[in-house]
Design a binder for these strands. Sequence first.
DNA 1: AATTGTGAATTGATTCACAGCT
DNA 2: AGCTGTGAATCAATTCACAATT
Lengths: 221, 221
Amino acid sequence: MGGPPVDAVAGIRYFSHVAKFVIPRKTVYRLSLYFRIVERLHQNRIETVSSAALAKAAGVKPTQLRKDLTYFGQFGTRGLGYKVSSLVTQLASVLRTARFQPVILIGAGNLGSALIHYDGFAKEGFEIVAAFDIRPERAKGGNPPILPMDRLGGFISEHSVKLAILTVPGTNAQAVTNALVEAGIQAILNFSPSILQVPNNVVVNNVNLAIELENLSYFIT
Amino acid sequence: MGGPPVDAVAGIRYFSHVAKFVIPRKTVYRLSLYFRIVERLHQNRIETVSSAALAKAAGVKPTQLRKDLTYFGQFGTRGLGYKVSSLVTQLASVLRTARFQPVILIGAGNLGSALIHYDGFAKEGFEIVAAFDIRPERAKGGNPPILPMDRLGGFISEHSVKLAILTVPGTNAQAVTNALVEAGIQAILNFSPSILQVPNNVVVNNVNLAIELENLSYFIT
DNA sequence: AATTGTGAATTGATTCACAGCT
DNA sequence: AGCTGTGAATCAATTCACAATT
């Protein structure tokens, strides 16, 4: 939430599957949170859950959880709560495109090479299929392979990659972004400190770790 | 942003220095953004800047930038714009506690060890002075040292550390948090997927990289 | 003429309050 | 009785429109 961090499109019209009309971006974000929790409940053979319990686990108010869910339909039973298994199914279907997407990473520097092996992505069903770097000495085999930048465009279209993680220095960020957009990338997780200019069919989420820390430190006494 | 990601206190009363009344948390967040940009302008010997130019660089609307700045006072000159040097001074003073804080990191796993050496923190004036891990085989010397968990409380009070980065697995996150709070930590940058329960004199920013990616992928077609 | 500062208007998100099911 | 679903009310953040200033 940070916040912050999530920035770009205010809300989205929801054409692809069944839903009311426009879903606030923050709601979509929280849906991922809820999904994780009900998955765990499901694993633990818990069959029903109330909005109060679920909300507590997610760190939100029960009314907010209920409002969030009803953007997509009525999943609960009054007087009883939500059936965990059907929540899992419904949320999975709403977020279905979300997982098991191939991802590329550009900029195999300090942060980049850490993220390449970050198991949190793999755990959630995202696979970094390749990384790219301008410095040829980094561009050697391994898994995932680190490839030279001139392979970028070709790789994206060959593997129909739609998601990219950008961990290049701020000075190169826009140039690389242009190449990504040109090659057909639709969403970018941007760790560089630059504000990226993209056409509005491309979504960007910014994560600036130094600002997160600075922002926190503002609140200490 | 992020979304997001920034979550905990809605706004803060601003006692410590001169300001209007309550400053929205998002405003404080953007202030860091502005500060970075004016620092760069200053280095490049640029003397004045308009709200339009500054806003563009920060990726916000000019009116928003002006409103953000006037929470702290009137820094600009009508008809002319803002004097870069005085903006630098004023913003630095507002964010003054923000930099040059010692920081500890708990959980020297995959992501943790990457962040220990992430130069983006150092560049912004944050120094990770020590890391802690339960697994003793990770707890060896080096710079910064990786210490065993039983040294945590002592280290925090000895070095008056107020900021912690939490990169432990979700299952341990709350237990470690309790220890941190107990020892006097005031702000936590939480990379674990858990929602942390903390007293309200402690601030938490959540960063969940997997959710950022999942959220992005929701918007691709 | 240019550009800030700001009250008012608008837009967006959250919470309340309670009707409606089971 | 318990708990969801939701319109209305509230609260918060953004943007507009324009007066004020240089």
